[in-house]
Structures are given as structure tokens and as C-alpha cells.
Write a protein that binds this DNA or RNA. Structure first.
Ligand SMILES: [Mn+2]
Ligand SMILES: [Mn+2]
Ligand SMILES: [Zn+2]
Ligand SMILES: [Zn+2]
Lengths: 149, 149
DNA sequence: CTAATGCTTGCAATGGAAGTGCAATTATTG
DNA sequence: CAATAATTGCACTTCCATTGCAAGCATTAG
């Protein structure tokens, strides 16, 4: 895939350094997808990315996201819609080790899912003998935009 | 599908009454699937049911579960594995109205998912402007059987 | 700089779960 | 028993996720 790199070179430079720190190669696809995710304020599906980059192959997008996931650049969100969504990890996020402790909100009206990164998941009690390693919490309802503030 | 009704008639009688109270017809399939769910202590997938009733058609099993769901006889569980699981609702459960407020535990070792029906989901704070209608909380880790008590 | 090596990409194909249309079967009602 | 309504089985379909393989591109050793 040939792309015209008409995007901000300064930003791109930073992303390149970031990729290097994560020990992954810098490619046009990866830069573009990273930028796409960074500009979105909501979690996206693979189809969303597909629609944004129609010239690229679905598999490449899929594998790029998988690579990002392995390197803790993005995290998966299962919001119960049946379609996996992805969002950039926060700086200093360590979802490789213990999963993402913030909660996610899914709007039943506009169908968007957002990370509530500063809403941490409270400590959850489990019965004797059970060991909790990881918690997934999704709140569903109406988002701020849809509720009319 | 022809089945030999070699199962406890007294129990069956109770289930029949239960179905009547839910205003659904009593059929062999429904009785068998209900009994199957009642005997399981874990949430099951459609495939689990399929394997247990190989003579039955998948679609019938699928639609039976859907009917149970609509009538609040079972509730769906999305434990993040990507495959929907089902479990019987507790007596007095009203997951039709407000979703199931108990939490679910998914064992990363044996891959089983169980309802922790008496572990209710705590009140979750959401930001200004957001309206919470419903919460899905899944704890992942090691279950009591796998942790060695 | 060039060649060898290994990672990345595109294409084609597969698998699995979920869901639907329609006709045949079975249950309920009168 | 006949008419009516709900349930079941079969054949398809759709959609997302995932993989094998060969071609393309980037990195590194020489
Ligand atoms: Mn998130
Ligand atoms: Mn449950
Ligand atoms: Zn919304
Ligand atoms: Zn276990």
C-alpha cells in the first residue's frame, strides 16, 4: 500500500520514537492507524478502521491491531455488542500485566463506547477460594452527548 | 424429535407448572433443556447444549434458549470469551427489568463461568451527564476448584 | 553497497457463532 | 375431530475473527 505522508511530520516523529521504544518496526500502515486511533475519542471496531483505510487490506489492519495489543499500545474492549473494540492505552498503562482497571461506558443510544480512564474499578469481593486476577466492567446507558448534557 | 421421558416425573411436573406460569407451552425439548440447565452448576454455551442433545437441531436449541431468555427463565452472560453463555435465573430474579445485578466469575484455568448470585454489583459512579442503566461485571481469575480449595 | 535474513503485507480461504425463511410437525382450542 | 396457533427441522446466510502462503519491504552482516 502506497500512502502519501501528508500528515504532521513532527507528530509522526514522536510516534516513530514511541514505536521504537516498543520495539516494533515503523511502517506507513502502523503510523496511520496509530494516528487514527489517537484522533478518535471513542473505542473503534476493526470495521471502523477498515472504512477509514479502504485501500488497505483487512488482514493487515487486523494484524496491526494485534501487534499493538501485544505491545500494550492498545487495549481490547468487550462492551457486550459482540464486536471487539479497541482504544489506545494511556501513558503508563500496564494492561499487559494486570488488565486495565478503568471502566468502559457503552451508550445504548449512539452505540459508542468510551474509556472512562479516570474511573477506576472498585475492589470486588469474591468468595473464599476464588482468586481474582482481572475485572471487566462495562456500564451501559446514555452518554453525555445523547442525554443532552 | 422423539424422546423417552425417563426423567423424574415429580420434578418434571413442577417444571411444567413453572412453564405454565411463564405462559409458554410445555414441550419435550423445553423440559429437557431446562433440566439440563438446572443440573449444571455453571453457565453453558449453545454448543454445550448441542453436545448434550445431539439428536436435536441446533436451531431448536437456539430458539428454546431465546424463548427462555425472553421469559426471564435464563439470562445471558458475556464473559469476554466471545461466546455467549446462559444460566438459569434465580427465583425472583427480574433481569427483564433491570439487568442482573450479580457478578460473574470466569476461571482462566478450567474456562468455566459461574454466577455469583449473592455477590451483588456495587454502585458504580459515572461522570456528569452519563446515565447508567445497566452494568456488566465479570471477574476473571482462578475458581475455587482450580485453586485447590 | 549488496546479499541474506526476517518482519510485514495482501490475497484467498476457513471456521465458528448467530440468525432467518419456509415447510412440516405438534399442541391447543372449540 | 377440525381449525388454528405455536414449535421444530432443514437449508441457508451473514458477519466477525483467524490462518497459510507467497510477495514485498526493512534491517543487518559482510
Ligand atoms: Mn479503555
Ligand atoms: Mn448469572
Ligand atoms: Zn450516546
Ligand atoms: Zn476453574
Amino acid at each position: 500500500m502506497k500512502v502519501v505522508m501528508d500528515i504532521n511530520y513532527i507528530n509522526m516523529n514522536e510516534i516513530e520514537k514511541f514505536f521504537a521504544s516498543k520495539k516494533i518496526r515503523v511502517t506507513a500502515m502502523r503510523l496511520l492507524i496509530y494516528k487514527f486511533l489517537a484522533e478518535k475519542e471513542v473505542a473503534v471496531t476493526l470495521s471502523d478502521i477498515e472504512n477509514a483505510f479502504e485501500k488497505a487490506d483487512r488482514t493487515t489492519l487486523y494484524r496491526t491491531i494485534k501487534t499493538f495489543e501485544e505491545k500494550a499500545i492498545v487495549h481490547q474492549i468487550d462492551d457486550g455488542t459482540g464486536i471487539t473494540k479497541y482504544a489506545l492505552c494511556e501513558k503508563g498503562c500496564n494492561c499487559e500485566i494486570e488488565t486495565d482497571l478503568h471502566l468502559h461506558f457503552h451508550c445504548n443510544n449512539c452505540n459508542k463506547t468510551i474509556c472512562l480512564t479516570d474511573h477506576k474499578i472498585p475492589q470486588i469481593k469474591v468468595p473464599e477460594g476464588f482468586i481474582s486476577e482481572n475485572v471487566n466492567l462495562v456500564v451501559k446507558g446514555i452518554c453525555d452527548k445523547c442525554s443532552g448534557q
